[in-house]
């Protein structure tokens, strides 16, 4: 159902997530999470995003540990001088449900974005030309520099480097990143000269992508309408 046109897909995801992130009722958020879970499991473009959810656990655990004690409401149990309130547990569950749902929706809708197409889509969404050029070039060099960082890191390990919590470790990492930056700046200069040699005039030629087909507009309308409808149900 997600629009194939990346511009509409980005917009639909933004509208849907903006609506979902403002939910107030635990019932709506819980039902929604229960609906989105199987969707992400069976229809998602990626394997189920365990790592993305895992990344949030620390923060959510912190919420469950503190919110029950800081919010007033019906007492649930007492722990010494502290009183845990039912309202706090509800509030923490609401946030956990919303955060997880948003991560899953983001994965289902935008998990398979090809970085190479992002620049054209951003340009199509009227993002300033320099910003989308910066985005395209950053993406282009990320994988290159990640390889460079891995090579330098491997070389350090081959010399017997073990990361520990010490000044030597921090200084070594500083030198590693410094070397990465020096090589990157040299490369930036070479790249710029090579581009000027080939007649680079200061901006990339963008082909405006074709007008999205009706199918994509329907998908866009359905996803954003679903987001708004859920928000309206939540506030009723």
């Amino acid at each position: 159902m997600a629009p194939a046109d990346l511009r509409l897909r980005l917009l639909a995801a933004f509208i849907a997530i903006a609506c979902l992130s403002q939910l107030h009722s635990l019932a709506v958020a819980g039902v929604l999470l229960a609906l989105v879970l199987p969707l992400a499991w069976f229809l998602g473009p990626l394997a189920f995003p365990w790592r993305r959810l895992w990344h949030l656990e620390g923060f959510l655990l912190l919420l469950f540990a503190t919110l029950p004690f800081t919010m007033d409401g019906r007492p649930l149990f007492t722990l010494g001088p502290l009183v845990a309130s039912l309202d706090g547990v509800w509030r923490a569950s609401l946030i956990a449900a919303k955060v997880s749902t948003c991560v899953l929706v983001l994965t289902v809708l935008l998990g398979d974005v090809e970085p190479a197409r992002l620049g054209v889509a951003l340009r199509g969404l009227r993002v300033p030309e320099r910003l989308s050029r910066l985005c395209v070039m950053t993406m282009r060099y990320t994988s290159l520099l990640r390889d460079e960082a891995r090579r330098l890191h491997d070389a350090m390990r081959a010399r017997g480097f073990r990361p520990r919590s010490s000044r030597h470790t921090w200084r070594s990492y500083g030198n590693l990143i410094g070397m990465l930056l020096v090589r990157a700046l040299d490369r930036a200069e070479r790249v710029e000269e090579a581009m000027l040699c080939r007649g680079y005039t200061g901006s990339f030629p963008y082909h405006a992508p074709p007008f999205p087909p009706l199918r994509d507009w329907i998908g866009f309308g359905a996803i954003s309408a679903a987001g708004v409808a859920i928000l309206v149900i939540d506030r009723l």
């Binding site: 910066l134 950053t138 060099y141 520099l145 960082a149 890191h153 930056l181 700046l185 930036a188």
Partner: peptide, 25 residues
Amino acid sequence: LDDRMIPRAAILGAAVFAGSLIAVP
């Protein structure tokens, strides 16, 4: 960010992105 600054900014951004993937104990 003029035209000459963008390649440098982009490659620095990519380097910081790559550097931020290394976990420091």
